[in-house]
Design a protein around this nucleic acid. Structure first.
Lengths: 333, 333
DNA sequence: TCAAAAGTGTTATCCTTACACCCATGT
DNA sequence: ACATGGGTGTAAGGATAACACTTTTGA
C-alpha cells in the first residue's frame, strides 16, 4: 500500500511590471554539471507530509525560501500525474520515484527584485510568443505556426487528419475565426502533440531511454522550453487567470493599492494579451462599481494628470459574478 | 525523500434521474464491524503509481470495478491534502500514512441501476438540503440555518463576529440579498467552520484523540454527513458544475442523445437548483445555436407533443464562451 | 503651440426580462 | 370542453460597441 510517490509543489507567481506580464522563474542546480540549469523552471519543491499541515503553507514556505519573496493571493490550479510527461524534480533527482505535482497560481502586485540567486522575472511571451495580440495578430502564427500545423495535420490518417486541422484552425484562429484568449493550455498541448514544443522531443527521447537530443532547430516561434512539465503548468495558470478575470475581480491582486484607470487597463491587457476599448472599459468599471475615485491625481503620466482609484474590496463578497444566461424567474410558470 | 504518502482518487459521478440530481454513493465495508459503513461515501480508491499511467485511467478502472459502471465525461476538481480534515481511506485503514485525495467529477446521461452491492444513486439534496430553490427559498434556511449561524457569529470576538455575520448573510442570502447558486463549497465550509456540519464534530474528536461521538442531534437541516471529506468534495463538484454550465455546454453530458426542450430545462434546473423562465430559456438556446430540432416528436408528454432536439456537438470547439466584459477593439486607441 | 495622455457625449444594435397569448393532444 | 404541457410574439430597458470630441498637462 505504501508506494514510492513524491508530491511536488510548483508555483506560478505572476505580476505585471512596466505593462508586461512576468513570471518568477528559477534555474536550479543541475546535479550532473554542478552549474545552474540551462533551462528555466518554476519555483518548486517537495511536499513534506510530516512537516506541513496544508499544501498552501508548504508552498508559501518554500517560495519564500527559494526566492526571498512572500506570496499574496494563492489558488490551486491542477494536479499533474501523467507518466509519459516528464515530471517535476526528475531533473534534480527524485530517485526514480513517481512524482505527482500540484500546481499553484500566485499573484502579486509587487514585482520586487528578488535577491535570491538564479531567480528572475521573465516575460510570459518568451514561453508563449503567440499569446500576445496587443499589437494585432502576431506574424509568427501565420508565418511559422500555421504551416507547421498544416504539415502535422496532413500527416494524420483519415478522420484524424481532419480532426487535427479543425483543432488547429479553431485554436489559432486560422481562417478568420475568432481568437479565444482563454485557451492557452489547449494551444500549448496542441503544439506539444504536434511535436513542435521542444519538450515533446525531449520527453520522447527519455521515454525511449535515449540521451536527450539538443532541441536544436525548433523555431523560436514555438517558445522557449522549460524544465520538466513547467511550461504546461504555466499555460494552465495563464489560461485560468485570463478566464477568471472575467468573473472575479482578480486583476486587483496585480495592481498597487491605488492606480489610474489607464494603468488598470494596461494591467488587464498585459494578462489578456489583447487591446481594450478605453471608453467602454471605463464605463464597465463604473457600472460594476468595482473601483472608487480618490480625488487625488497622478502628475507623472506625461499628459493630463490622471485620477487615482482604488479597488473597493469591501463589497467583493456577494457580487454575483455575472457569468451568463440562466434566465431566472420569480414565481410560477 | 520518500515519504508515507498515499494518493487516493475520489469520484463524484452525477446524473439527473426523473428530474432530480443524483450522485453515485457507496457504503464500504467497515473494518471494525465487518458490515457496510453507516455513512455513505463517494467511490474512491488508491492510485497505484506502478500500475497506472494517468489519474484518469486509474479512476475509470476503479469506478468500473466498484460500481460496474463506465464513466463518460470526466474532469479533475481539486486535490485535498489538509491534515486537520479527516482524509479519505482513513476509515478503511491507510495504515497511518498521510492521504492526499484527488477529486474528480464525472457526468453521465444514464443513471443505470448499478448492479454492484452497497452502491446507490442518492439525491444531492440529502447532503445539501439548502441548495434546492426550485420551489422557492427553502424554509429550513430561515427556520434552522440562519438562527444557528447567528449564534455562531455572536460567539465571535470583535471584528470576527462582524465578519462571520457578513459571510453568513452573503452566502445564504439572509437579508433580502441575492442567492448565488454557484457558491456551494463556500456555504458548506461555512457550516463546517460553524460546527454545524456533522463532520466538523467528528474531525474535532479525532484530532483530540477521542472516540467518535455520535453526531447525535444535529438538525437534518444541515444535511446528512458523509465519510471522511467526501461531502466537501461533493460540494466542490456541485459548485464547479453549476458554474461551468454557464460558460461551457456541459449540460449535454447529462442528457440523452435526443431530448425535448422541457426535459433539457428540467435537467438544468435540477443541477442549478433554481427555476428558469421557459420562453427566455428557449430564446437563449436558439440564439446560441447549441441545439437542433429533429422534426420528430415525443408523444408521451401528456399534452401537445414536444419536438425532439439534439446537441450540435460538432460546433462545440471554438465557441467563445460569453464570459463577459473585456470590450475588445479592432485597431488603434 | 503642439504632442500626449486623460476624460466626456451620443448613437445604433443586441440581449435580457417581462408580459400575454395560441396550439395540439388526452380524457 | 377543458386540462395539460408545448410553443410564439412583442415591447421596454439595459449593456455593448462604435463613433467623435474636449480637457489638462509638459516640452
Amino acid at each position: 500500500m505504501t508506494q514510492l510517490v513524491v508530491i511536488g509543489l510548483s508555483a506560478v507567481v505572476m505580476a505585471v511590471r512596466d505593462g508586461e506580464a512576468v513570471v518568477l522563474t528559477v534555474r536550479p542546480m543541475d546535479l550532473a554539471t554542478g552549474t545552474a540549469s540551462r533551462l528555466a523552471g518554476l519555483p518548486f519543491g517537495p511536499f513534506d507530509p510530516e512537516g506541513h499541515r496544508t499544501f498552501e503553507l508548504a508552498l508559501r514556505a518554500f517560495v519564500t525560501e527559494q526566492t526571498r519573496f512572500d506570496l499574496g493571493y494563492v489558488e490551486q490550479l491542477y494536479t499533474f500525474g501523467d507518466k509519459g510527461r516528464d515530471a517535476p524534480l526528475a531533473d534534480v533527482g527524485a530517485g526514480g520515484a513517481r512524482v505527482i505535482s500540484v500546481g499553484y497560481l500566485g499573484l502579486t502586485p509587487l514585482p520586487v527584485e528578488t535577491a535570491a540567486p538564479d531567480t528572475a522575472w521573465s516575460s510570459l511571451w518568451r514561453y508563449f510568443p503567440w499569446e500576445d495580440w496587443r499589437q494585432g495578430r502576431p506574424d509568427l502564427i501565420d508565418k511559422t505556426i500555421a504551416p507547421a500545423l498544416k504539415l502535422w495535420a496532413e500527416a494524420g490518417r483519415g478522420e484524424d487528419s481532419e480532426f487535427r486541422q479543425n483543432r488547429s484552425r479553431d485554436l489559432f484562429a486560422l481562417d478568420g475565426g475568432a481568437w479565444n484568449e482563454d485557451r492557452v493550455l489547449d494551444r500549448y498541448e496542441l503544439l506539444y502533440e504536434a511535436g513542435l514544443a521542444a519538450e515533446a522531443a525531449r520527453d520522447r527521447d527519455r521515454a525511449w531511454g535515449l540521451a536527450a537530443t539538443e532541441p536544436a532547430s525548433l523555431a523560436p516561434a514555438f517558445g522557449e522550453p522549460m524544465l520538466s512539465d513547467h511550461r504546461r503548468i504555466l499555460a494552465t495558470a495563464l489560461g485560468r487567470l485570463r478566464g477568471k478575470m472575467k468573473y472575479r475581480p482578480v486583476v486587483f491582486e496585480l495592481t498597487a493599492p491605488t492606480f489610474t484607470l489607464s494603468e488598470l487597463q494596461r494591467t488587464v491587457e498585459a494578462v489578456a494579451g489583447v487591446k481594450l476599448h478605453k471608453q467602454n472599459f471605463r464605463r464597465m468599471l463604473d457600472r460594476t462599481g468595482l473601483v472608487e475615485g480618490l480625488g487625488r491625481f497622478d502628475v507623472e503620466t506625461g499628459g493630463r494628470p490622471a485620477e487615482l482609484f482604488r479597488f473597493r474590496r469591501e463589497q467583493l463578497q456577494n457580487r454575483s459574478a455575472l457569468g451568463l444566461s440562466l434566465p431566472l424567474i420569480r414565481e410560477g410558470n
